[in-house]
Each structure stands twice: as C-alpha cells, then as structure tokens.
Write a protein that binds this DNA or RNA. Structure first.
Length: 192
DNA sequence: GTTCCGATGCTT
DNA sequence: AGCATCGGAACG
C-alpha cells in the first residue's frame, strides 16, 4: 500500500487533521527480521502557526519547532515531561508552520476484538510503535520509511471536534475546537 | 467517581 | 520555570 503523498499534507493543518482520522499508521522495522505494525488513527489535534498560542511554532522557528515551518509530510517528534514522546505530522506548504499531533490509534489486527487494546494518549502511542526523537524529520511519504500513513479504503469516519488537551495556558486559543476524533470511539480521551 | 502528585529532561 | 503526559495514590 502506497504512503499518502506530500499533496495530502500540503493543505490547511485542520483539514489534514480531520482527514487523518481513519487512516492507518504503518510502522516498519527493517530488521532482520523485518516486522511491522498497523494502527488506525482515531484522535488528533491541529497545531497551527505562529499565531496559535498553544503551538510550539508560536515563538517562531526555534531549534525544536523549526521543522513545523519546513516541508509537509515530515515527522515532528518532541519529548514532553522528560519521559514521553509525542508524534506530529507536518502540514502546510514549505515556509508555513503547522502540525498534527496524533493522540490515539487502534491496532488494525485488534479492531474486530470485543474490547480492542487502544493506544490512547500521545505518549502511549509513541511508546507502542517505538517512535523517539531519533525519528524526528523522517519523511512520511517515502516508500521505504520506517513510518508511513496509508489509506486502506476503510469508510470515512464521522468526525467530532473538541478543545485540545493540556493547553489551558493558551487563552482564547485553548478554546478553539482543534481536536478531532472519531465520534463515539472508546479510545478517545475522556477530557472535554 | 474525583483530584493531586511525582517522575524526568529538554526548551526557552 | 514550565511543559501538547501518564499512572498511581489519596480522598470522598
């Protein structure tokens, strides 16, 4: 299955965020032995450019956040609270900041189970698929990447929106509904 | 059920 | 000093 192309990511961040719901993260370990894991995205957050007071891009292209200003379709990883990694997909055209935080996914092979083990929360998700700072900058659109995103033809889910989690400091931007999730999905954060 | 807290290290 | 988090403890 072919990775989503650069053109998918090169759009408004909130559009990319919504459309990532239902898509499948494919993590490949080259090995040997070569292995892989697949998880369907069920919750994301859009972080916009310099005007977004909750975004790491708010202080401009600092060493950490510069990648948010670069070409779309790249992986932005950061370390939070000294122990958890968070993965983001860079959106918008080169020169404009934007990224989508991936907050929750469900392993594809577990989807049919009665109570599928969810990878809920950005830190837990990153740990589950073994993504760390050394993957920052990875090209999500390259055929041979250790991490790509694919459309497996599953039906487009019904999308709901809510405030982003953990950005209370951001004033009016904290109240924007820039978190998107599969409506009614049990793996989604309980927070409103 | 809720709220609180500590862990741990990078960023500004 | 604060953080785009998590899991466990304390409390009701």
């Amino acid at each position: 299955m072919v990775p989503l192309p650069v053109s998918f990511y090169e759009r408004q961040t909130s559009v990319v965020a919504r459309e990532l719901l239902g898509k499948v993260i494919v993590r490949r370990w080259p090995g040997p032995p070569a292995t892989s894991a697949r998880a369907r995205i069920v919750e994301v957050e859009a972080y916009l450019g310099e005007r977004d007071a909750a975004s790491h891009a708010r202080r401009g292209p600092t060493p950490r956040a510069a990648i948010m200003f670069g070409p779309p379709g790249r992986l932005y990883v950061y370390l939070i609270y000294g122990m958890h990694h968070c993965m983001n997909f860079v959106a918008e055209t080169d020169g404009t900041a934007g990224a989508v935080l991936i907050r929750a996914a469900v392993p594809v092979e577990a989807e049919s189970e009665r109570d599928p083990r969810a990878l809920s929360g950005p830190g837990k998700l990153c740990a589950a698929v073994d993504i760390t700072l050394r993957h920052k900058g990875l090209d999500l659109t390259a055929l041979d990447s250790e991490l790509v995103v694919v459309d497996d033809g599953a039906p487009v889910p019904r999308v709901a929106a809510a405030r982003r989690v953990g950005v209370e400091y951001a004033g009016a931007w904290a109240r924007r509904r820039l978190r998107f999730y599969v409506a009614g999905h049990p793996a989604v954060s309980r927070v409103r």
